[in-house]
Nucleic acid binder design. Structure first.
Lengths: 95, 95
DNA sequence: CATACACTTCGACATTTGTCGAAGTAATGA
DNA sequence: TCATTACTTCGACAAATGTCGAAGTGTATG
């Protein structure tokens, strides 16, 4: 659990994750899976491509997202189960 | 929010927080406020007193706990509002 | 094939973090 | 008042982290 918190403990990485969440919601509305064009994310955050790539791998490592390649692009999908896990963690602790 | 995650991102600090949570529950059952004898916590965790002291201040800095002095001892109290905040954060995001 | 695109990997680097031992402080007890 | 207890503060230091530029990889496109 501390690893999940660690993954979200960095400002840029949390923002990145929230962006993905937001976009995945939009994509859901469009009836298709989310694809996360790094270029878009880069314009929001003030960090370079290598950092984004690094952060994505960290989010993936703790199971918050999954990624696959689709041609040149990276496809990121949120893993809701892990979020639920954290939600329940706090629900159970904040009796 | 990333600061709260950061506070819980360290294994020892998270364990410390969970210990406090657990003890505060026991103390509640006893009808009194929790007091967190560092010596007890030290025996559970594998770190020294200065580190505990440091971690407690970090937890306090992000509002997860509050501390006061009672004689020689430190009294720690959990702040449930902050935990609720995190719970709702995940509830709202994990649509 | 040559070029451009969309990332990724590598190495380097400054910054932050976690831990400790030693010394300090404030309260309690003999 | 002197010693003990229960932390806290202060460096110091190794380890982890976040960022970047440069170079690399694999995919599309002219």
């Amino acid at each position: 659990m501390s690893k999940i918190f660690r993954a979200l403990s960095n400002k840029n990485r949390l923002q990145l994750f929230l962006n993905l969440l937001e976009e995945s919601r939009l994509d859901l509305a469009k009836g298709r899976v989310h694809d996360c064009f790094l270029a878009n994310i880069i314009s929001n955050l003030r960090i370079g491509a290598p950092s984004i790539s690094h952060h994505l791998r960290e989010l993936e490592a703790v199971g918050l997202i999954e990624t696959t390649k689709e041609g040149k692009q990276l496809v990121c999908t949120i893993v809701p189960e892990v979020m639920k896990e954290v939600e329940f963690f706090f629900k159970s602790k904040a009796s």
